[in-house]
């Protein structure tokens, strides 16, 4: 009986598709594993640039954020993949080793995109740190670097964790757009299966379940981080 049920499930198209899409999970994860940490570090730097007292820096960062947030990610991916490739100087430079690969174009586009959103989120967090906390740090003789490392960043980061968690989920979803530059991650594979089997629902539902699972993990991670870095908000320690 049980064997019959299992063999019935493994015979269904959706199960076969699921296995096929699952084998492309590492391609999606690889995109995220490079662009998310890179995006996080650069977002912090850009957030500091955004509130810099040098007008040139803050204006430059502000216009970067404005441009990236005002255009769709698809335009940015196409600009990097098709646009940069059409410039002769780029094709002859050393960057071409990376830029001719759809994978690295995807990483570059995703990083550029998330930095614009992340910088704005972190700016809000940094500016929400109250003046008293900074002043007390200064009164204790903290240097500027130590002040940021020990006081401003920890308070700011835990303040913006829920918002940044949303941005992380948007990034997981955004990786699907890289499939439009012929990079075969989960959505690309699902599209290929659809073209082969003419069964769109089974192909895309299989991919959808995996994306849901990835996002579920991301939510759990963010909630754990919120729990870990907000000990003062826990009911019982």
């Amino acid at each position: 009986m049980l064997f019959n049920i299992i063999s019935y499930i493994t015979e269904t198209l959706i199960y076969k598709n699921f296995i096929l899409v699952f084998s492309a999970l590492d391609e999606t994860l690889l995109l995220l594993l490079i662009s998310l940490p890179l995006g996080f570090v650069l977002s912090l730097i850009f957030a500091l640039g955004r509130i810099s007292k040098y007008t040139i820096i803050s204006r430059a960062v502000a216009s970067y954020i404005f441009t990236i947030r005002g255009t769709p990610l698809l335009v940015q991916i196409y600009l990097i993949y098709f646009g940069l490739g059409s410039i002769k100087a780029v094709r002859e430079s050393i960057f071409w080793v990376l830029l001719k690969e759809p994978f690295w174009c995807g990483v570059l586009a995703l990083t550029i995109n998330t930095v614009a959103y992340g910088a704005e989120i972190f700016r809000g967090g940094i500016q929400s740190v109250t003046k008293g906390q900074i002043e007390s740090g200064q009164a204790l003789g903290f240097s500027t670097i130590k002040l940021y490392r020990r006081i401003v960043f920890p308070i700011a980061l835990r303040q913006v964790l829920p918002t940044y968690g949303n941005e992380l989920i948007l990034m997981v979803k955004a990786t699907s757009l890289v499939s439009l530059t012929t990079y075969m991650e989960m959505t690309g594979i699902a599209r290929k299966i659809m073209a082969k089997t003419f069964a769109p629902v089974e192909a895309f539902v299989a991919a959808g379940i995996l994306y849901l699972f990835l996002n579920f993990l991301m939510v759990q991670l963010v909630q754990y981080l919120e729990w870990k870095y907000n000990p003062h908000l826990r009911l019982n320690n």
């Binding site: 989920i169 979803k173 955004a174 990786t175 699907s176 757009l177 499939s179 439009l180 959505t187 699902a190 599209r191 659809m194 769109p200 629902v201 895309f204 539902v205 991919a207 959808g208 994306y211 849901l212 996002n215 579920f216």
Partner: peptide, 21 residues
Amino acid sequence: TVIRGIPELLVIYLIFFGGSA
């Protein structure tokens, strides 16, 4: 939850290819 958890492109594919059927 489901629609926000899966990529927009996937929703569009699903409705574009599966909608007529």
